[in-house]
C-alpha cells in the first residue's frame, strides 16, 4: 500500500495500532503528507452527513400501484411455471417407467438375449440342470440322485400347435 492510501486508511480507521503510529510519525516529519491529510479530512468532513435530500416525485398510491401489479404478475408467473413444466413431464413419466421395466428384465435375464438358440442352466445349489429348446418349444429339468446321476423329472411343451402334438 502506498503512502497516500495509507494516509486515507488512517483517516477511515482501517489501520492497526502499529500502522497508525507509523503514519503519525510520517505526518510529523513530512509537510506534503500533512497537507494531503488535511485535504482528505476536509473532504470527508464536508461529505459526511451532507447528502442531498431527494424526494420521490410520485404519489404513494401511484408508486405502490406499480409495485403491487409487478408482485401479482410475478406470483402468477411463479404459479404457472410448474404447470408449464408438466406438459413434457407427462411424456417423461411413462418413458421412465418403460426404461425401468427394460432394466429389470435385463438384470433378470443375466444380460443375455434370446435369439431362438437352446439354453442350458446349471443350478449348483440344488444339483439340477434345466434344458430349454426354443426350436422344440420344450423345457426339461434333470435332478441328480445320490449317485449324481441326472434324470429328467419334467417336460413342458409350450404352446405347440395341435397338429404337431
Amino acid at each position: 500500500m502506498n503512502t497516500e492510501l495509507q494516509l486515507q486508511a488512517n483517516l477511515d480507521g482501517e489501520l492497526d495500532a502499529r500502522e497508525v503510529r507509523e503514519i503519525e510519525a510520517l505526518l510529523a516529519r513530512d509537510a506534503q503528507s500533512a497537507a494531503l491529510m488535511q485535504e482528505l479530512k476536509w473532504t470527508k468532513g464536508a461529505i459526511s452527513g451532507n447528502e442531498a435530500e431527494v424526494k420521490l416525485p410520485e404519489t404513494r398510491e401511484f408508486y405502490w400501484g406499480k409495485i403491487e401489479r409487478a408482485i401479482v404478475a410475478e406470483e402468477r408467473k411463479a404459479a404457472a411455471a410448474p404447470a408449464e413444466r408438466a406438459w413434457w413431464l407427462k411424456f417423461l413419466y411413462p418413458a421412465t417407467g418403460l426404461a425401468a421395466v427394460v432394466a429389470v428384465m435385463f438384470v433378470i435375464s443375466g444380460g443375455r438375449t434370446t435369439d431362438g438358440a437352446d439354453t442350458e442352466s446349471v443350478q449348483e445349489d440344488v444339483n439340477a440342470i434345466s434344458f430349454r429348446s426354443e426350436a422344440e418349444a420344450m423345457s426339461v429339468v434333470y435332478v441328480a440322485d445320490e449317485n449324481a446321476t441326472y434324470s429328467p423329472v419334467s417336460q413342458e411343451p409350450t404352446n405347440e400347435p395341435e397338429a404337431d402334438k
Partner: peptide, 10 residues
C-alpha cells in the same frame, strides 16, 4: 414501502 420509499429512491 410508504415509510422507506424516499430513502430507497434517493
Amino acid at each position: 414501502v410508504a415509510r422507506h420509499r424516499d430513502k430507497i429512491y434517493a
